[in-house]
Computed example of a mutant assay.
Amino acid sequence: MDVDRTDRAAVGRYGEDLAAQMLVAAGWVVVDRNWRGTRGEIDIVALEGRELVVVEVKTRTGLGYGHPAEAVTPVKLARLRRLAGEWLAGRVVETLAERPLSVRIDVVAVLLVRDEPARLEHLVGVV
């Protein structure tokens, strides 16, 4: 891992890059990254076929504060639902050739433990 583990922003960016690479390798199309709405940010907006997926990426360098996915609270999920609607209202016509058939929220948990390969866990449809 070529990232300063003490720099939280760098660790987060690295985890988001790994998550985006994983999704693209699985055949997804990433249509937006780090999109800022009026009340927060969406890490990744992607298409899996005709399904629009808002992806929250949580990266940790250890389990001292719990599993990365545990940081995605009900309050965070509610915010992501609102942000997904805001993104759709403002961007879908410009960005997508066809309207998505459905929308869901996924979480990618990234664990970066020293001297081990990164571990990514993809949680599908968390709400």
Rank of each mutant, 00 (worst) to 15 (best):
R5K: 05
R5G: 12
T6I: 15
D7H: 05
A9D: 15
G12P: 04
R13N: 03
Y14K: 06
Y14G: 00
L18C: 03
L18A: 01
A19T: 07
A19Q: 05
A19F: 12
A19V: 03
A19E: 02
A20Y: 06
A20W: 06
Q21L: 15
Q21P: 05
L23G: 04
A26H: 04
A26E: 07
G27S: 08
G27I: 04
W28Q: 05
V31Q: 06
D32Q: 11
R33D: 01
N34V: 12
W35K: 06
W35F: 06
W35N: 03
R36Q: 09
G37W: 04
T38W: 14
T38V: 13
I42M: 06
V45R: 07
V45Y: 02
V45H: 02
A46C: 08
L47A: 03
E48F: 13
G49P: 00
L52T: 05
L52K: 06
V53F: 06
V53C: 07
V54Q: 00
V55Y: 00
E56S: 05
E56C: 12
V57Y: 02
T59L: 09
R60C: 14
T61R: 04
G62I: 01
L63E: 02
G64M: 14
Y65N: 13
P68Y: 08
A69S: 10
E70K: 14
V72W: 06
T73R: 13
P74A: 10
P74G: 02
L77I: 12
A78H: 08
A78C: 11
A78W: 11
R81I: 12
A84E: 04
G85M: 01
G85E: 12
E86R: 08
L88V: 07
G90A: 00
R91P: 01
V92M: 10
V92E: 12
E94C: 02
L96E: 08
A97Q: 14
E98Y: 14
L101R: 14
L101N: 09
S102L: 01
V107T: 11
V107Q: 04
V108G: 05
A109R: 00
A109D: 00
V110N: 02
V113Q: 14
R114Y: 15
R114E: 15
R114D: 15
D115W: 03
P117R: 09
P117N: 02
A118W: 07
R119Y: 06
E121C: 15
L123R: 13
L123Q: 11
G125W: 15
G125C: 13
G125L: 08
V127I: 06
